[in-house]
């Protein structure tokens, strides 16, 4: 796909950082406000899609590397399952950090409250793991589809030239 005009590239350079930060904000506050792992991951992946569209596929391949995304995706998935295994002292997926005083372990006040980020135990960790996996996974999907489109366009152009 061709790259877009200069105005689009300047605005993209300015704004993609803010989109990624906003996405991580949604991932991190998943246990208090609407959002969580998948929603935040999708927002971060949309920043990568914006980079891909505004710079074109050939230039974007230089700074969006598929192998790093694949490694991040596997790390996110493994972190999710390992955190689930750590609760195996009682049952699988047991929330062993909630109400315990350590990491993310403050007591939760039942009912309507202004929201304390340090609560809810295992949930923020799993949100981060899922968010990592989702943005890496959606990034890989978008990059591979762009690759496929490029390949078919080259084949069509080669046939039209013949």
């Amino acid at each position: 796909m061709k790259e877009m005009s200069r105005i689009v590239k300047i605005v993209t350079n300015f704004i993609y950082g803010f989109i990624i930060i906003f996405g991580f904000y949604i991932i991190a506050h998943g246990h208090l406000t609407p959002g969580g792992g998948f929603q935040g991951g999708a927002v971060v992946a949309s920043a990568f899609a914006m980079l891909l569209i505004s710079y074109g596929q050939l230039k974007a391949k230089k700074f969006l590397n598929i192998n790093i995304f694949s490694l991040l995706e596997s790390c996110g998935l493994t972190m999710f399952i390992v955190v689930a295994f750590l609760g195996l002292g009682t049952t699988f997926f047991y929330n062993f950090l909630a109400n315990s005083g350590s990491w993310f372990g403050n007591m939760v006040i039942p009912g309507i409250n202004p929201g304390d980020m340090n609560t809810a135990g295992v949930l923020p960790l799993m949100n981060i793991a899922v968010g990592l996996e989702v943005f890496a996974g959606l990034g890989i999907i978008v990059l591979l589809m762009a690759d496929g489109a490029e390949y078919t366009k080259k084949k069509e152009n080669a046939e039209n030239d013949r």
Partner: peptide
């Protein structure tokens, strides 16, 4: 902790963990 009590979930969780580790092993 009696591991035999957890057999129904270990039958699922061990292949799931292996499925997520295989791309990392595959790079080596």
């Amino acid at each position: 902790m009696n591991l035999l009590n957890h057999t129904p979930i270990l039958i699922l969780a061990l292949p799931l963990l292996a499925a997520f580790l295989i791309p990392i092993i595959g790079k080596i």
